[in-house]
């Protein structure tokens, strides 16, 4: 238990001194601010690019547009940045040989994996909440409608999917020799989820729906209970990936 704490602390110091944490925080803050801004600007941009010749009236932006931007940006930019920055988390340590000292001094390899996953999940939660609260605050300030009642319910599935993605990164990073290989494997896994999404039967069980249905959850148009299987599957897959990472790291030559 104590070792988990110390190794997590080491991870924190590392991410702070390589300014990874700072970069992540700034990027997610920027993402948070950009969502309401883009929602406000979109009608003006359309107006400007078409001039007065546009026959239809562009509807005023609502809080839904702002949240729509949030879920678009978080899944397209946020998750990609997270994947890029975390991709070398285990393979980097193995290739640099920084783990040898710790392991020969009696640190269990499972402790390494568990504290890494705890710290990565903490980082993801923190960054996501940062973007979430910034978007929420600005949305409340600029859009005074009540089109989006279920704010927390909508963001919860995204958080779950983020955890699944992070454990996937951890596993692929443990398997591969360098961060590029890990990136490729993580990308492959996400593509696989997208391909599976073609089949309607799997929709309720596919973790990727946790990132595509958020606007419906937000409006209350779609019941989150229907997607419970996808959440449970994501949760158990995450646990399985952490376990597999431990098994593989145990067999790996450091």
């Amino acid at each position: 238990m104590k070792n988990i704490y110390y190794f997590s602390k080491k991870e924190f110091l590392e991410s702070w001194r390589t300014s990874r944490l700072l970069i992540l925080m700034i990027i997610f803050l920027i993402l948070g601010i950009m969502n309401p801004l883009i929602a406000i600007l979109t009608p003006d941009i359309i107006q400007m690019s078409f001039g007065d010749s546009l026959p239809v009236n562009i509807p005023e932006p609502t809080s839904l547009d702002s949240w729509g931007q949030f879920y678009q940006n978080m899944t397209q930019m946020g998750l990609i940045v997270i994947t890029l920055l975390f991709s070398g988390t285990m393979s980097g340590e193995v290739s640099k040989g920084t783990l040898i000292n710790l392991v020969t001094k009696g640190l269990k390899r499972s402790t390494v994996v568990i504290s890494k996953s705890i710290y990565l999940i903490l980082q993801w939660s923190f960054c996501m909440l940062l973007a979430f609260f910034v978007t929420w605050a600005y949305t409340l300030y600029y859009f005074t409608d009540d089109n989006s009642p279920h704010v927390f319910l909508a963001v919860f599935p995204l958080w779950i999917f983020g955890i699944l993605l992070i454990t996937t990164i951890l596993l692929t990073s443990t398997v591969s020799k360098n961060s590029y290989e890990g990136l490729l494997l993580t990308g492959g896994f996400v593509v696989l989820l997208f391909v599976m999404n073609i089949f309607d039967k799997f929709e309720r069980y596919n973790p990727i729906t946790l990132t595509s249905e958020n606007i419906n959850f937000l409006q209350g148009a779609s019941n989150i209970g229907n997607y419970m299987p996808a959440m449970l599957i994501s949760f158990f897959l995450s646990l399985l990936f952490i376990y597999l990472s431990i098994v593989i790291l145990n067999k790996k030559k450091l």
């Binding site: 300014s19 601010i33 801004l37 107006q47």
Partner: peptide, 27 residues
């Protein structure tokens, strides 16, 4: 759309955005 009034309306959004982008660039 009037440029100046537009800027004034959205200062609470634009100022933090510019500061953050700048911090990121400087870092």
């Amino acid at each position: 759309m009037n440029g100046i009034s537009f800027l004034m309306d959205h200062l609470p959004l634009l100022i933090p955005l510019i500061i953050l982008q700048f911090t990121l660039m400087i870092t």
